[in-house]
Simulated assay, not measured.
Amino acid sequence: MNSNTSPIGIFDSGFGGLTVFKEIEKLLPQYDYLYLGDNARAPYGPRSFETVYHYTREAVQWFFDQGCPLVLLACNTASAKALKNIQQLDLPKMADPTRRVLGVIRPTTEVLGQFTQTGKVGVLGTSGTVRSNSYPIEMEKYWPDVEVFQQACPLWVPLIESNEHEGDGADYFVKKYLDQLFAQEKGIDTLLLGCTHYPLLLPKLKQHIPAHVTLVAQGEIVAKSLVDYLDRHPEMEARLSKGGDHRFCTTDDPLGFRKQAEVILGREIKAAGVHL
């Protein structure tokens, strides 16, 4: 990727955003992409509003410095705790206020109600996402008749970031949080994986949920929403470079990031280390 490109920036606290990038790449392969995982400071879930906002704002500025006119926060915690302030307070003050930052919560809630028959949806998320109440608030706007039950899963992201999510030890914590959620409401028939890391736990999750419950991951939803956004904003679409180039960066060890990213994406990649 050369210095004259204008890639789409995709940000996550770690590896989880790669599950979103993978789906975006399928639908929009022609664009250039720049991915950043803040692995050195993951997980974001337990951190305060102020800290997540500070970290995310640093990342967004880094993307802008790399020439990205459009940045997607492929992280529910960052979307819940930082997106609104960045959109309303920071962007208008920047040298180029036409740049845009998008999140994953709104596009998810716009369609989530379509999956439930009982009108009872469970949301599995980080502690930060659950505490923000972003999903109940947004669901009330689009699906006021749907009840939302939330469950924080604070150990799932650390398991994934440490590559322990496929081991037998992960089963205990998967079942623990699922049991706590269904103890709130047995009629839940739809489960949202409200963290982009969680699709990496799908094999474990399917072992511990009833067969009739629908699991909803965000990757395809967010990818389709991005397609729609670019269709509705031709002025932004025209600014994006189209070379099919991909660049992957991490704030932690590039070798460790590359190994995990290659498993998720199913192909070889190169990764670089950066400092925010």
Rank of each mutant, 00 (worst) to 15 (best):
residue 273 G to Q: 05
residue 205 L to D: 04
residue 52 V to K: 00
residue 7 P to M: 11
residue 46 P to G: 12
residue 274 V to M: 00
residue 9 G to P: 14
residue 112 L to F: 02
residue 237 E to Y: 07
residue 69 P to Y: 11
residue 79 S to T: 15
residue 238 A to N: 11
residue 68 C to D: 03
residue 192 L to D: 10
residue 229 Y to M: 05
residue 166 E to Q: 14
residue 73 L to H: 14
residue 234 P to H: 05
residue 242 K to G: 02
residue 84 K to E: 07
residue 167 G to Y: 07
residue 130 V to S: 03
residue 45 G to R: 01
residue 43 P to E: 14
residue 8 I to T: 08
residue 112 L to P: 00
residue 275 H to N: 06
residue 154 P to D: 15
residue 19 T to P: 09
residue 269 I to K: 09
residue 203 P to C: 01
residue 84 K to L: 09
residue 195 C to A: 06
residue 239 R to T: 09
residue 76 N to F: 12
residue 253 D to S: 15
residue 214 T to H: 13
residue 214 T to R: 10
residue 219 G to L: 03
residue 163 N to M: 04
residue 21 F to Q: 03
residue 61 Q to Y: 11
residue 275 H to S: 08
residue 69 P to L: 10
residue 217 A to T: 15
residue 128 G to E: 12
residue 150 Q to F: 01
residue 248 F to H: 09
residue 120 K to H: 15
residue 110 E to Q: 10
residue 175 K to M: 01
residue 128 G to P: 06
residue 258 R to V: 10
residue 166 E to W: 04
residue 265 L to Q: 08
residue 55 Y to S: 05
residue 268 E to P: 10
residue 40 A to Y: 07
residue 117 Q to W: 04
residue 181 L to Y: 06
residue 95 A to F: 00
residue 188 I to Q: 10
residue 163 N to S: 13
residue 121 V to Q: 02
residue 272 A to F: 07
residue 155 L to Y: 13
residue 218 Q to V: 08
residue 53 Y to T: 11
residue 146 V to G: 03
residue 120 K to S: 15
residue 199 P to H: 01
residue 138 E to M: 14
residue 166 E to L: 13
residue 132 S to L: 07
residue 160 I to T: 12
residue 255 L to S: 13
residue 137 I to A: 13
residue 77 T to C: 00
residue 18 L to M: 12
residue 101 V to L: 04
residue 206 K to N: 09
residue 185 E to S: 03
residue 265 L to W: 10
residue 59 A to F: 06
residue 130 V to L: 09
residue 251 T to D: 14
residue 125 G to A: 11
residue 260 Q to S: 14
residue 56 T to G: 08
residue 188 I to S: 09
residue 159 L to G: 01
residue 218 Q to H: 03
residue 206 K to M: 11
residue 256 G to R: 10
residue 268 E to H: 14
residue 99 R to W: 05
residue 269 I to G: 11
residue 139 M to C: 09
residue 106 R to S: 07
residue 90 D to V: 13
residue 36 L to A: 01
residue 270 K to Y: 08
residue 125 G to F: 00
residue 221 I to L: 05
residue 59 A to K: 00
residue 183 A to H: 13
residue 68 C to W: 02
residue 169 G to A: 14
residue 27 L to V: 12
residue 163 N to H: 10
residue 86 I to V: 12
residue 260 Q to R: 15
residue 62 W to A: 03
residue 49 F to T: 13
residue 160 I to D: 06
residue 133 N to H: 05
residue 7 P to L: 11
residue 195 C to S: 02
residue 115 F to K: 13
residue 259 K to P: 01
residue 169 G to L: 14
residue 223 A to G: 04
residue 193 L to M: 14
residue 32 D to L: 01
residue 182 F to S: 08
residue 131 R to F: 10
residue 229 Y to G: 06
residue 44 Y to M: 10
residue 18 L to P: 01
residue 125 G to P: 03
residue 52 V to N: 05
residue 42 A to T: 15
residue 126 T to D: 04
residue 115 F to R: 14
residue 97 P to G: 07
residue 189 D to I: 06
residue 182 F to E: 06
residue 240 L to M: 02
residue 34 L to F: 02
residue 156 W to Q: 01
residue 78 A to E: 04
residue 104 V to R: 05
residue 20 V to A: 02
residue 201 L to V: 01
residue 66 Q to V: 13
residue 166 E to P: 01
residue 71 V to M: 06
residue 97 P to A: 08
residue 231 D to P: 10
residue 156 W to C: 06
residue 136 P to M: 12
residue 172 Y to R: 03
residue 174 V to Y: 07
